[in-house]
Amino acid sequence: MEKQLSKKTLNKSFWLWFYGNLTCFSQEHMQTFGYLSAMLPICEELYAGEPDKLARSMKTYTAFFNTEPQIGAIVVGVTAGLEQARANGEPVDDETINGLRAGLMGPLAGIGDSLIVGTVIPILLGIALGLASGGSIIGPLFYVVTWNLFALLGMRFIYFKGYQLGGKAVEILVGEKAQAIRESIQIVGAMVIGAVAASWINVSTAYKMLDANGEVIVDLNNSLNSVYPKLLTAVTVVICWWLMSKRKISPTKVMGILVVVAFVGVLIGFFNPGLQY
């Protein structure tokens, strides 16, 4: 008789991945234990009473795994489907499964990092920041609800698509239509981040040129803002971008550079937060 994974087992496997993909993270094995725990209910159901086959299949998943864990749900779904095929005697071996896993890890990490962490989360956080002005609780609540719904439903969808369609399911994420959607969402991301930068970052200079009588001739901050509002903020962002992407300086070091810039700027009077008790 054909072996068929029950809905209950698949759900259990999905939730184990959803919750446990990174709970026992180490630099050496990364998501491997999350993967093993998500595959355990699958293998136990397929090979009940066959300890040899159970051992063989669990051994397959001891191979290293690491990707963007949320979009990686699709890989767990695909291997659940492959394992079921293997249990039914189809020609699926360790190499098929681990070749597929290794082949998908890199590209999916790239898509996941740029689309989810680099675009969707910043867009939702950007809107939430707007809603949180004045300390309103609507901002954080908006993010908690929209992000978790999006992530949970999205992960469930790709996990079960992966299980049903196998390797072909990856087309949903990397196909031409998916690419068109991705590029469109990235436009929203870039624009929202621009608006976030302009609304929330405030770099200004205190430099004023005075004449002999102490009258202000040039108020640098006002002059710059009349050229392009928030010019100094825009320039600071672009310089940070240039340091990181063209000079390959790490974010932590760029922060260190800014500390030096701030110190020198305060010394020569370019920056002055204008504090008093």
């Binding site: 740029s114 990235q186 991301g189 981040i193 903020t233 962002v237 340091l243 990181m244 800014l258 500390v259």
Partner: peptide, 21 residues
């Protein structure tokens, strides 16, 4: 200096994102 650094730092956060897009 701490206050000035505080006003400059968010630029790094935005720049990290721009580096990707």
């Amino acid at each position: 200096t701490i206050f000035t650094v505080g006003s400059l730092l968010p630029a790094v956060g935005v720049a990290i994102l721009l580096k990707q897009i």
